[in-house]
Amino acid sequence: MKQCLVVDDSTVIRKVARRILEDMGFEVVEAADGQQALDACLNKMPEAVLLDWNMPVMDGMEFLQKLRTLEAGAAPVVVFCTTENDMSHIVQAMNAGANEYIMKPFDKEIMEAKFQEVGLI
């Protein structure tokens, strides 16, 4: 079973994402900030990361940059999931190593479509 790390400081977003991802056949691990996410990746590298941008302790961009420097950090498919919707943020995320970008709010159809595009399902 593929594992997806859901990184968001909102418990509601994590709960909604968990429900959708488990319905899609993923094992879900949660993190409330980038540092918790980095620790989770050092413990076990997931196949996918659903990543918020704006979080305390370590934001999504800093996490992504650190993830990509880890030995197996190039492997996970990273999908940013955020309210940051201007083109400069999207370009910045993709240049830092994100594979795809989802705008909040999202639903099951949007998430399934994006995960299909990047070859996760």
Rank of each mutant, 00 (worst) to 15 (best):
M1A: 07
K2F: 08
Q3M: 07
Q3T: 15
C4T: 12
L5E: 02
V7D: 13
V7W: 07
V7E: 11
D9K: 12
S10K: 04
S10V: 05
V12K: 04
R14E: 03
R14G: 03
V16A: 11
R18L: 02
R18D: 04
R19T: 14
I20R: 09
E22S: 01
F26Q: 03
E27R: 13
V29H: 06
E30L: 10
D33S: 02
G34P: 10
Q35I: 06
Q35M: 09
Q36P: 00
A37T: 05
L38W: 01
D39T: 12
A40G: 04
A40V: 03
A40D: 01
L42E: 15
L42D: 09
L42A: 01
P46Q: 02
L50Y: 00
D52Q: 09
D52W: 09
M55Q: 09
M55S: 07
P56Y: 04
V57M: 04
M58I: 01
M58W: 05
M58N: 01
D59F: 03
G60T: 00
M61I: 14
M61G: 00
E62D: 15
E62N: 10
E62V: 10
F63H: 05
F63A: 10
F63E: 00
F63V: 07
L64M: 11
Q65V: 13
L67N: 02
T69K: 14
E71D: 11
E71I: 05
E71W: 02
A72V: 00
A74W: 07
A74K: 12
A75P: 06
A75C: 00
P76E: 02
V77Y: 01
F80N: 11
F80Y: 14
F80S: 10
C81M: 15
E84H: 12
M87T: 15
S88Y: 04
S88Q: 13
H89Q: 03
H89C: 07
V91D: 10
Q92R: 14
Q92G: 10
Q92Y: 05
A93T: 08
N95L: 02
A96T: 09
A96M: 12
G97H: 07
A98H: 13
E100F: 11
M103H: 12
M103Y: 10
P105N: 08
K108Y: 13
E109H: 11
E109C: 03
I110S: 06
M111T: 07
E112T: 14
E112W: 07
A113V: 04
F115W: 09
V118F: 09
V118I: 07
V118Q: 04
G119D: 13
